[in-house]
Design a binder for these strands. Structure first.
Ligand SMILES: [Mn+2]
Ligand SMILES: [Mn+2]
Ligand SMILES: [Zn+2]
Ligand SMILES: [Zn+2]
Lengths: 142, 142
DNA sequence: ATGCGTATTGCGAATCGTTCGCAATTAACC
DNA sequence: GGTTAATTGCGAACGATTCGCAATACGCAT
């Protein structure tokens, strides 16, 4: 099973407090299936955490590395999720907007090529592919 | 030498007029070394084209495929350049913000893998790598 | 060249996502 | 429980982009 992140210790390690709001925001992120906007997080929060505080929490989580922020598709709002490595990249359906994750060594290959052939050590590799997802391209397959 | 795009015919083909403002915006894009914000384009424009009109022109150029829009690094403003294929991806220095282009077949490999192994035809592949550029990581190399 | 009808411009106001300032609250440590 | 600095909530501010609309300028046909 997947290691569960201990929010309290992660925050402590970076010199921050564990507040009820942060805990609630974290709970929403953990429970959500996908990539949420700050507004969605705020809405799903147990006690209705203030939007500005949600932004602050999400920003903090991203800074300390337990959450990941991305801008997907044509979307103008940022979205967050529990952190996952770059290697698991995003495939965004340009019809319905659904996002799938794709693992494998494709991203590693990019890193390796840049390092071996160009002496460049990639800090982050952001890869996002768009196209029609199976549900949208083949309407018959329910 | 690189084929030069004929703005007038590209616009005609898509049912749009060639205006002096569009010509000026295009001139700026063609002449610019890098990736420009709408504000920068407006500023560099011969007759000071209005910012809203610059946005409209850049949006149109992007729609008809002769310009490319990207959001690089932590930057919150969109940037434009004369269109180039996805295969030439972006390497962004997280210290100085400089952007380099990197060609090769890495992006094609991604497309091929997704098609062969998953029957997924990628419409766009957006790849952006971050790290320290040579100038920033090795200060001695002037 | 001239005139027409429509696409396009410029301008300011509006919108949207996100951040800020600051007084009131609260978590962490004693 | 008391102290104190970190955090919250609120509303106002912000920057990027878009919109509405009257004035203008293309493109095409005279
Ligand atoms: Mn993800
Ligand atoms: Mn580019
Ligand atoms: Zn879909
Ligand atoms: Zn640099």
């Amino acid at each position: 099973m997947k290691e569960s992140i201990d929010l309290k210790s992660q925050l402590r390690q970076h010199g921050h407090k564990l507040t009820t709001q942060r805990a609630e925001v974290w709970e929403v992120l953990k429970g959500a299936p996908g990539h949420l906007t700050a507004e969605q997080v705020a809405a799903d929060t147990a006690s209705g955490v203030n939007l500005a505080s949600v932004y602050r929490a999400l920003g903090l989580f991203t800074d300390i590395g337990i959450a990941r922020e991305s801008r997907l598709g044509n979307d103008d709002a940022a979205r967050w999720e529990v952190a996952h490595p770059d290697d698991e990249f995003h495939i965004v359906c340009r019809s319905c907007g659904r996002v799938e994750h794709h693992g494998g060594d494709l991203v590693q290959q990019i890193r390796t090529h840049l390092s071996n052939s160009h002496g460049f050590e990639a800090a982050t590799v952001e890869l996002a592919v768009s196209g029609e997802c199976s549900r949208c391209s083949d309407p018959s397959a329910a």
